[in-house]
Design a protein around this nucleic acid. Structure first.
Lengths: 403, 403
DNA sequence: GCCCCTTATTTTCCGCTGTCAATGAAAGAA
DNA sequence: TTCTTTCATTGACAGCGGAAAATAAGGGGC
């Protein structure tokens, strides 16, 4: 995270402190004793960590009418005051920039879009700055300060340094985006890969809450996958991880743009589906909406394409399950709009290809409005904000001893 | 780990203490300042942690003639005294039990085998106890106490509880092996899955030292894979992880015993190779040694089988690399004896199927004598021994908050 | 209404850890 | 000999988180 101004810091300097805050943030209102239990700490530690957070206004106390114990003193709920701080999340796509203003609980308050004329860093940064400016005005209207900006970009992104190493899509190489955006906007900036950002959002605020291992599979223009293992998002040694889209499920399959054959993405991405439906039906469909229309109309060729796509996705998911044993797989993305067309095939392929107990993995779907991508970016900003001072030293330390 | 006697405990009760010891153990003799650097701690902390370890005899100081700094006070090396404690590792296979006696540095001192008549827990335990008894006598001869017993079994093993949940190979279900073996032998016992045990050995004492993410792929009777992500061995939610053998690389491939088609194991395991060579050449080869012989003799059908096997393994490895971005992949196992027959194919398939920077992953081979499986078991015992008291509370704690 | 039981939360120590800054050691260099 | 440099140790210290005891806040029985 690149921080231009010495903003007021978050009052959870201890590791237990940020752990406790994170627990409350993601696991909803909780009693102190429940927090202690879930965080594996003593009740005393929770009391001590919670007080400054309440004083600073990040946590508030609620009376609980519902969930009081059958016996004994009633518990007080503690929850995050979402309105205490705002965040901006920005997602850069090929043709537009999406920006959202969220509260501390990562609820989207405002969403805005800006079309993108050019893809060079300068143009993108200019448009993003414009978008941020608009959202800052909205925030001003709410009278709450914006505590951070998160930016999500596809490709190889070095979050720690805030640098986009290589984004094939934008044709960027080694762009110090966090630094540039921090200078332009005056906000602390976090930059991360788009799928990883979405995974963070899911881990803290979505279907991944409380899980130490899960996979988020996004289906749409591309097929992506964010992985959480041992409670942390997997980043990969060379910025590559979660490339489920390029898991080859069929050596006889269609050629993929990556050069290989039979990648999941070459079979199940929007583009691939359009291409295959054209070939199978002869109809010159324009996009995924039309292909889905054909399939819904019962055109056999189109339905078969979706069947194959679902099969490929199911195999890809099974591969992840076989290798990592996640507790859950969350399927999401724009492609979900046509989910009914491949749901059964995904399920069947998964059931067939999952080995042994891996089949017990909970596979669920989750609608993903496009704004969610920007929300993911905001989630990374929230994450950085919470850890602003605390753990800073941990991040730099040599963490290569076995555990 | 199931511990029957309150054995003298390891003097590294603090997390930093065991971290420092582990660093010295796996990264060889180091100066104190170098330890501090690698462990991300202050020099003072190292001094304080090292002293009791030296007093207890687990660490010893060496004078360094070679690697002294160009300037300034010469440094003293600290290293683990392997002879301070001994460990026994036991690996159970279908027809025999392999046992090794190792020192604290996991160097094999003695290796023994016992044939196995029956596979029921009682018979296995009896044979294992016999083996352990022999090794204890050897240890007595050395005058050093055996500080722990590690047992490695294939299948779903719950290490924390010391229970074999389900081993298809042995046909065991919920066998509390650690408890049983502890009662029989009087030693503290650690039980783990065999591939994970081997991965621990590799992480602490092999080609995985210092890496926060790597994969160990074993080729032989089965195709296995141990994964280390974020510095920890991946165990999987339902005891399943690293099942690279059941990653399906070809939907048109041969039927696998798991019910699916085209699994790596159905193409590249010893059995699969024998079966395919028989089909291709008509020669009734008996085992993998003979098939390798045929291939080495230039029999085209046999060579093709190995080519396909190498291709499948390479694709499987690429899948792991695409999903996890490990820093290194270590290929090992008995199948390596015929490595020259598929090396090129593995390499080619990996290069083709690895996506983008994933191809930069370091793929290396490492001979694996069969004793190594038992050494892996010993490594888990060493790991448990070092953590005996320290961190005990960490293991039980709720570790589900996002990080 | 009073006392007892139970659970939640807070308070008060208290030990322990790891850092900091200062100091001592052990070369080689000037 | 004295300075410089790096390694190692020491002692003071701040802070964290735990244990235990105290306090809070009901419900129920009498």
């Amino acid at each position: 995270m690149s921080s231009p101004s010495a903003a007021e810091s978050f009052p959870a300097h201890t590791s237990a402190g940020s752990q406790i805050f994170t627990t409350v943030l993601s696991q909803g209102p909780l009693t102190r004793s429940e927090v202690a239990r879930r965080a594996g700490l003593s009740a005393a530690a929770v009391t001590k960590a919670v007080r400054p957070l309440i004083e600073a206004g990040y946590l508030v106390e609620d009376v609980d009418e519902d969930a009081r114990p059958a016996l004994g003193r009633p518990a007080n709920l503690v929850r995050v005051d979402g309105g205490r701080a705002l965040f901006i999340g920005v997602k850069v796509t090929g043709d537009k920039i999406i920006g959202v203003l969220t509260d501390l609980c990562c609820r989207i308050l405002v969403a805005r879009y800006v079309p993108l004329a050019a893809r060079d860093p300068k143009a993108v940064l200019g448009s993003a700055a414009e978008l941020v400016r608009e959202l800052l005005i909205e925030a001003d209207g709410l009278g709450v300060r914006v505590a951070g900006l998160g930016m999500a970009v596809s490709g190889d992104v070095d979050r720690a340094e805030g640098v986009v190493r290589y984004s094939p899509f934008l044709e960027w190489r080694d762009v110090p985006l966090a630094e540039l955006a921090a200078m332009t906007t005056g906000l602390p900036v976090t930059v991360d890969n788009d799928v990883r950002a979405l995974t963070v959002a899911e881990q803290w605020f979505g279907a991944g809450v409380g899980l130490s291992g899960f996979a988020l599979v996004t289906v749409g223009a591309g097929i992506g996958c964010g992985l959480v293992v041992h409670g942390k998002v997997v980043a990969g040694a060379h910025g590559v991880a979660g490339e489920i889209g390029h898991v080859a499920v069929d050596p006889a399959g269609p050629r993929c743009h990556c050069g290989n054959r039979g990648c999941v993405e070459a079979i199940a991405s929007d583009d691939a589906i359009v291409r295959q439906v054209r070939a199978a039906t002869g109809v010159q469909v324009a996009d995924a909406v039309e292909t889905a229309g054909l399939a819904h109309d019962g055109v056999a060729g189109a339905r078969e394409v979706y069947a194959r796509a679902g099969d490929a996705i199911g195999r890809g998911i099974a591969t992840v399950a076989n290798l990592l044993g996640p507790e859950r797989v969350i399927i999401s993305g724009e492609g979900l709009a046509a989910y009914d067309l491949f749901a059964d095939h995904i399920r069947d392929a998964f059931a067939t290809a999952a080995f042994g107990s891996a089949a017990r993995c909970d596979v669920q779907t989750r609608p993903l409005p496009f704004d969610e991508w920007a929300r993911g970016a905001a989630a990374t900003a929230i994450q950085s904000f919470i850890r602003s001072d605390a753990n800073q030293h941990l991040r730099g330390a040599a963490m290569t001893q076995p555990a």
